[in-house]
């Protein structure tokens, strides 16, 4: 059987001739996307230049205004970036969009810091604007906007330390983001210099509208559409290592095609949990989109409840998302997994087996103890169906263990993958310490970064 949407790059039998071109197309698509973003980020600034006469306030204060306008624009775009809108998510991949959203928060903070510093440097009497009691409302709105942003960043960076559940954090994140943008716009209206008249005012309002629409799409419209394409829990199976496989069946529709290595946001359809969604990798073969499976380890409030789900429970699947896949046609694959990071890898292997893929695979799989090795029985079966060699690495091996023990590092990889690494496409998924040790190892062994596809799993 050959499925139309295979894992990895396609096997020989269905290979298309444009392998390397795909990588180039992907880069140029992302380049175009960045160019579009850059254009949007400076549109209000350009509109001010067109619509306003030169000021007479000196370089520092004009630069302060420029950074303020850019900051407000970036803030509006930040709301739209993670919204999984087709035009944003398709060229980038949803996980790349979220990573970019995090990195651009640094750029936003830098723009705000430059704005504040230059306002004071340009005119030291502006220090009075920071007097909490005597400052005009426009300055108070700006301070409140910054406070909302600071709270937003603090709750994102220290979510675990603050013991915020994922659902609670998301609600807070949305509210603080909208609050910061609203207060920032209020500040611009109060300043009444560049953004309140003419095309620049309209553009800024338009960008804020785009941000808000992104949020409305993500939180209201999208869930409503997904509710029309539900999935039912078919089986709930305990796996080794404290994981649970959730087998779903598309109800009244053919299911959405996905590629191995991609992920989806799952949420229970009942109203009590309608706002709580969590991202998980597909663990099933991409050849059966109507019966997707997710293998989930109990870490937090939602994941701990997965084993208790009953067959027939309605689940909404927002996916597939993610661009975790090979960018060229390789003739061999090295897969490195740690713990529950095996889930996208097992999907790759199941799909390869369903496709009759004859290329060689080596899986280096790190676990704590032998009895905790998730999918260990199935991996034995897959070794018979595929040209697959599995190297188990245990952190706490049992007495008499003849296999590998310790960490997945350069020495271990060199022992098991002599000569294979340079020609291979390498996929990794696991917890941060394992990933960084394995990535260091691959670097020392001379594997080119563009052939390494790493995904860090996060616990939510």
């Amino acid at each position: 059987m050959t499925c139309a949407n295979p894992a990895l790059s396609t096997p020989q039998s269905v290979r298309s001739p444009g392998g390397m071109a795909t990588a180039k197309r992907s880069v140029s698509r992302k380049g175009l996307w960045v160019a579009g973003y850059c254009l949007a980020a400076v549109l209000p600034l350009a509109a001010v230049l067109v619509g306003s006469p030169p000021g007479d306030r000196g370089l520092a204060l004009e630069l302060a205004s420029a950074f303020g306008i850019v900051a407000l624009t970036l803030l509006a775009l930040q709301l739209a970036l993670p919204a999984r809108l087709g035009v944003v998510a398709r060229p980038l991949g949803a996980e790349v969009a979220i990573r970019l959203h995090r990195h651009l928060a640094d750029v936003l903070v830098a723009a705000i810091a430059a704005h504040v510093a230059l306002v004071v440097l340009g005119d030291p009497s502006n220090l009075a604007l920071f007097d909490p009691l005597g400052a005009p409302w426009r300055a108070q709105a700006a301070v409140a906007s910054c406070a909302a942003l600071a709270a937003l960043i603090a709750t994102s960076v220290w979510r675990r330390k603050l013991r915020l559940s994922y659902a609670c954090w998301r609600g807070l994140h949305n509210a603080l983001g909208i609050g910061a943008l609203g207060l920032g716009l209020l500040h611009a209206i109060g300043v009444d210099r560049y953004l309140t008249n003419g095309p620049s005012g309209l553009l800024t309002a338009g960008l804020a509208g785009v941000g808000l629409l992104g949020l409305i799409e993500l939180r209201l419209l999208r869930p409503r559409r997904l509710a029309g394409r539900p999935y039912l829990v078919e089986r709930v199976e305990r796996e080794h290592g404290g994981a649970t496989s959730l087998a779903l069946r598309a109800e009244g529709h053919p299911g959405r095609r996905f590629r191995s290595g991609q992920f989806a946001w799952l949420r229970l359809a009942d109203s009590a949990h309608a706002l709580v969604e969590h991202p998980f990798s597909y663990s099933s073969s991409a050849c059966r989109p109507e019966r997707p499976e997710f293998t989930i380890k109990a870490y937090g409030d939602f994941t701990s409840r997965v084993p208790e789900l009953r067959p027939g429970t309605r689940v909404l699947v927002d996916g597939p998302h993610g661009s975790y896949r090979a960018r060229r046609h390789a003739d061999r694959f090295v897969l490195i997994a740690g713990g529950i990071g095996i889930t996208p890898i097992i999907s790759l292997l199941r799909t390869a087996a369903d496709n009759g893929d004859e290329r060689p695979f080596v899986l280096v799989y790190g676990s704590l103890r032998w009895e905790q090795v998730t999918f260990r029985d199935e991996l034995e079966q897959l070794e018979r169906r595929l040209d697959l060699r599995v190297v188990h690495v245990l952190k706490e091996p049992p007495p008499g263990w003849a296999g590998e023990a310790g960490f997945i590092d350069a020495e271990l990889l060199a022992r098991h993958l002599p000569g294979e690494l340079r020609r291979a496409e390498v996929f990794l998924c696991g917890p941060p310490p394992m990933l960084s040790a394995a990535l260091d190892g691959l670097e020392r062994l001379g594997v080119a970064p563009e052939h390494v596809h790493a995904e860090q799993f996060v616990t939510v």
């Binding site: 960045v34 980020a41 030169p54 370089l59 630069l63 205004s65 420029a66 790349v96 830098a110 390494v452």
Partner: peptide, 30 residues
């Protein structure tokens, strides 16, 4: 080691915004 494409994207956007702000200030204060 891992090729994180968001780094060049962020750097490009950051540089572009900085240049745009500088150009704006230079024109407005000229």
């Amino acid at each position: 080691m891992h090729h994180d494409e968001t780094r060049w994207m962020t750097a490009a956007i950051e540089l572009w915004c900085l240049l745009a702000a500088l150009a704006f200030a230079a024109i407005q204060s000229a």
